[in-house]
Each structure stands twice: as C-alpha cells, then as structure tokens.
Design a protein around this nucleic acid. Structure first.
Lengths: 300, 300
DNA sequence: TGCTCTATATCGATC
DNA sequence: GATCGATGTAGAGCA
C-alpha cells in the first residue's frame, strides 16, 4: 500500500474526528468523502464498527444496521428498564447489548449465562436520542412488553451481516433415547413390545405405549436425565388417563402397599431415565411404577 | 488536536497494517511504539478493539483480555462443537462469540434469544492457534463439558473492562404475590389466616400454610402466571404430605365426586394464580381444590 | 454437593 | 393463538 511523504497512511484511509469526544474513526473504503466525515470503519464487506461514537453517529449506524439486517453488538455505559409480564430496573453500568435482526435483544453484564435483561425474537428495535442519551427500545405485543436501554456512553458498536450456518446437529436428546428403546425394547425389560409413540390420552401424549411379556399395557415415560418427583406425576397422569379410558378399575392410590400384588394395577407405568432422585424413587414405589436406568446414548 | 502538514492526523494516532490482510488498526494511546506495531485500537480506558486481526493478533488480544477480566465479543466465521451431557456440531458460519470473565461462553447466530451453543459460568476459557485457525475452547467439570469454537476468520474482536451496576430490581415475581397475600389474606378468601410461609413437609416447603374461617388447615400454592396441571400435582403433594403428617384420614382420591361434601378433605388446597388451563381446572376439580384468580401485582 | 422449585424461562409441536 | 412438554434448560435456596 502506498504511503505519502510525511504521512505514510494518508492515501487510502481517512481519519475522522468526532467533535464531541475527539477520537479517531478510520474509514477504509475508497470513496473520497469530506475530510471530517463521520463515516464508520468498514473493516470488511460484512462488518461495520465504530469506536466511541457520538450518540448521533451511533444512531446512524444502528439504523443502517437495522436496515441491513445485521447482528449488532454494542458496548457501553447504560441503564436498563423492562416492563411487561414483570418489571425491572437496572442502574448505570458497562454492559453489552446484542440486537438481532429477528427482533431479539440481549443485555449482558460480565456475569451469568443469562442476559440480565432481554426481549425475545419478534420484537421491534428502535433507536433515538433522548435527553442527551442514546435510547434503544425493543417492544413486542402479546404480551405487551418493552425493553429500554439508555446509553450515556457508547464505547464500541459493531454490526455484522450474518449468513447461513444455522444447522445444529444435537445428539443425546430424549428423541435419541426413544430411538434407542424402539431399536432395543429389551432394554426396558425382556418381552416388552412397543406399540405406539406419542399415543394420545386425555392427559396428553405418552412417550411410548406398549405391552409387557404378559400382554399387560405399559406406559413408558422417557427422560434424558436424572429426574425428580414431577416426572413421576407426569407418568401417573398418563397411567390414570389410560385406566379411565380403558375402563379399568383403579388400583389403590394410597400408601398401603401390603396388598400391592393383589391389587396390582392393570396398567403398568415405567419411568426410563439415567437415574432418579430419592423423592422420585419414593413416589415411584408409592405408585407401583418401575424404573429403568438408561442413558440417551450408550456408555462408551 | 494538532495536524502536521500533509498528514493532519499523523501526530497522536498511529495506524498499523496487518501483514496478512492489509487492513488498518488505529492506536490512540500515547506511547510511541514502533511504526508497524500490531497493538490494538484502544479507544478508551475501558475498551480494546481490533478489526480483521490475524489469528496471532486475535490470540494476543484474547489472552490479554482474559488476563484483564474483560467482557469479550468476537465476530467471525467459525465452526462450533460441544461435547458433554449431550453433543452437537455446527458447520461454518458467521457468529458472535461472547466470553465472560466469570467463565460463561455464548455463541449467538442472527436468530433466537438462546445462544446456539454455550458454556455456563465457572468454565475456563483457552485460546490457541491450531491448523491455521483460531481455536477458543471453554471447559468445565461436573459435568465434564467442552465447547470448542474454531474461527477461520475473525472479523472483529472487542473487549471491555466491566465495572459495577449489577443490581437488578425485579417486580412482579412470585415473592411479590406472596407479599400481597400476606398483606391482604382476604384476597384468598374472607377469614383466611396465614400461619406460615415455606412451611416444611415431606413433599418440600409449601408456599403458604394457614387456616380458613372454620379453622380448617389450608395449603396455598402460589404461581405468578397462568398454570398447567403440574402446579395442581405440586399442590396435591403438599396436601397429601400434610394429611399424612397430621394423621388425618385421606379424602377419596378418585373421581367419584358425588360424596365430596361428606368426605371433604380435612385439609384444603388452594391454588392462587392469575388463571389456570382447562386441564389444570379439571384436576383442581378432581382433587377438590380451589382456585383464586390473582396477579402478583394489582391491576392498574 | 445434591435436591427442589422458579423463571419476564425459551422453544417447538400440536391442536 | 392456546396448550403442553422438552431443554445441554439456568439460577436460587436449602439441607
């Protein structure tokens, strides 16, 4: 690249000064805009970036990025307020605001996997300058919710045109567990025969419905990980619904397990999960349900 | 600010050229490092930013930012793989990687509130150059999990030292609902008297325990929003546990509601929530429980 | 650490 | 749009 005498990089690149904070912005495109241009730094075809922009600059860049459908990242000092299903306020601090073209908005601090405030996809982003601050507002309806981020300082704003590559392949989900059991029903118990998946009932669809070696109906509930009492309740609802549907007399529902064998429920329930908590095990025993320890994917 | 003849901004600011992609990097600090320095753009005391850096530059900046405990944002083209409780792979594409000093890592595409891949806080970030790509790896134990992001191109890397402002005040939570009920027990029903919150039981702590106008024990389950059948099951567990604990004969647990009044349970259950689903309403009726429609915060 | 439960949960399928 | 169940749920509180 060519360098002029006394200013080695004065040729292709421009340096603009923000009047309010006297910081440089470098522009690498080739157009010869006026010297004190506020144009942003275009570092490549896909990324736009400005450093310590004035609110006005930041506003322009945001609106352009909205227009382009860019993925946007803003570092800055801001306050955040949310009002909707709940309401929250967050005092001034340095944070990262991420704005997505699908309407999602995320406010991240330096801690936590979860954003401290957010707005789900489908929201609408708007930017404006109000009372000397850059205000970014994201709103949605049903439910009506508003997220407002007010920047006193924008340290860094970047926007990238994102293309493709959204095809995540995930292994080890509950679906893998179902596949595994349908492939090898004996993993549930010898003689188990799956008849139907997602079989409808008044309590909702059950994961796997089948019969055991004796021909007794079996409801199987699948969980990809260690489960608590709620999963037992879910299985119980399916079993109860099926009993009602088939007009089968209910087994005793109390804790007098002495005559469990005599009053064995005409429909069995089996919970398939890697493991269960103590409380869940108790409830399984109360209900007369079985537990099969099984992972979504085979151990190595 | 002073401008030298022929190069108006050659004084305080340096422009460095990356040998591999011939793009400028501006440095605004005042130290007089060698001309072709690879130093990043320090736009303020708190933010570091580099544009289209070489992998080596990006690596240096990442390691410095890790050292400083910065909040980091990286735009670039990358592949992502995860292995742990489950496993996943994601092909090449433009994404945003956020690295937090508490160990959290987030990979965001242009869609969704949720990161496409992530690592929770407590993980350890490591960066390296492998096979011509910049590899950022985040690992944790218990469970053992690894997230690997491999950049073929880094478009933009920013890091910010984040300070303070983590005190979120949230209103409209279940705690608000509890406060509201303790303040005005008549909102549950006239004559209701709260006795205890978080009262322990073998099924876990119940939200509110009290007595009604007749002195009958009442278990109150609170939900801040519309609820499904799971909440009824939860309430039922508390009521059952309390019956057992107090040695009270169980009310009938089936659907023969004809003699509901005669065998009325000696312990009542009330679900307080803005509304309930149809299925939940059925189960409430089955169990003989009540429902009180109430919001966490009063309607305007 | 393990267990239980909440969440502005989010997300997808299904009706 | 409402409902229901899965999630690599995350996160908090407590034993």
């Amino acid at each position: 690249m060519g360098a002029e005498p006394g200013c080695p990089f004065g040729g292709l690149h421009r340096i603009a000064v923000n009047s309010d904070n006297v910081r440089p912005t470098t522009v690498t495109d080739l157009d010869l805009a006026p010297f004190l241009s506020r144009n942003p730094l275009h570092v490549s075809v896909t990324v736009t970036s400005v450093h310590d922009p004035s609110h006005r600059e930041a506003l322009w860049e945001l609106e352009d990025a909205f227009e382009r459908g860019d993925l946007i990242s803003v570092f800055g000092r801001c306050t955040v307020s949310y009002e909707g299903r709940a309401a929250s306020d967050l005092g001034a601090g340095d944070r990262l605001l991420v704005l997505k073209p699908d309407g999602a908005a995320l406010v991240h601090t330096d801690e936590g996997r979860q954003p401290v405030n957010w707005q789900p996809p489908g929201s609408e982003h708007h930017a404006a300058i109000r009372e000397g601050r850059l205000r970014v507002r994201s709103t949605r309806s049903n439910p009506d919710e508003t997220l407002t981020v007010q920047f006193s300082d924008v340290h860094q704003l970047s926007a990238m045109a994102v293309t493709g590559g959204r095809d995540l392949t995930l292994h080890g989900s509950e679906e893998d567990l179902r596949t595994r059991i349908l492939d090898r029903p004996d993993l549930v118990e010898p003689g188990f025969e799956p008849k139907e998946t997602e079989r409808p009932s008044s309590a909702g669809p059950m994961d796997v419905f089948g019969v055991d070696a004796d021909g007794t109906p079996v409801v199987v509930e699948l969980k990809r990980r260690r489960v608590g009492p709620d999963a037992v309740g879910q299985l119980a609802r399916y079993v109860r619904a099926l009993r009602e549907e088939l007009g089968i007399e209910e087994g005793s529902d109390d804790d007098s397990g002495a005559d469990r064998n005599e009053t064995a429920p005409a429909i069995r329930g089996i919970l398939v999960a890697p493991s269960v908590t103590d409380r869940a095990a108790e409830r399984l025993a109360d209900r007369g349900f079985g537990h099969v320890a099984l992972d979504p994917t085979p151990a190595e």
